[in-house]
């Protein structure tokens, strides 16, 4: 009996873990810049990776597996990934949601719907001219930006270093 309960409990635990891995498309939140801004400026012990991308951006899509792998590698560390999509609002249901589902993306995904980009690009990062992919990696004491297309090795070494920082 004890064994059965144990099996039952472990089964419940596993299914719980599995179900939490299934992406919930309702959490693709549509935000304007002012609503997004707090996510770019947390001041706590976590290292944040904020990636600006779009489903139509080939180099963005190419680096997603690297981001996902790093996210999984440091899942027990204070590290969080936010994916900010610049897909057009009209493509939320037809393109973005199916993409997030089919690629099993488990990070938080936002759709930034704020056409007056000239107003907010500098607020994200002064050195950013607006091209994507663009990645912001920040913590309490640092804020770095990258316009390159990441591979796993490069991204892993950056995150590894940042997480270990005192």
């Amino acid at each position: 009996m004890k064994r059965l309960i144990l099996i039952l409990i472990s089964f419940l635990f596993v299914s719980q873990t599995l179900s939490s891995k299934v992406p919930d498309t309702k959490r693709i939140r549509v935000l304007n810049y002012d609503q997004l801004e707090p996510y770019l400026n947390f001041r706590n012990d976590t290292v944040y990776l904020v990636n600006f991308w779009a489903t139509w951006c080939a180099p963005c899509i190419a680096e997603l597996p690297a981001i996902k792998a790093v996210e999984e590698k440091y899942s027990d560390k204070k590290f969080k990934v936010l994916l900010v999509s610049l897909d057009m609002l009209g493509h939320l249901k037809s393109r973005l949601t199916p993409f997030v589902l089919s690629h099993k993306i488990t990070s938080d995904v936002f759709l930034l719907d704020d056409p007056n980009q000239n107003r907010w690009i500098d607020k994200v990062d002064k050195s950013w001219s607006g091209e994507i992919p663009f990645t912001l990696i920040y913590g309490k004491d640092f804020r770095d930006s990258y316009t390159q297309q990441f591979d796993f090795k490069t991204l892993d070494s950056i995150i590894n270093r940042k997480i270990k920082m005192p």
């Binding site: 980009q117 001219s129 091209e131």
Partner: peptide, 12 residues
């Protein structure tokens, strides 16, 4: 400034 597609260049 505006959002746009990064220029595709192997050297990048």
């Amino acid at each position: 400034k505006a959002i746009g597609c990064g220029i595709k260049d192997k050297r990048k």
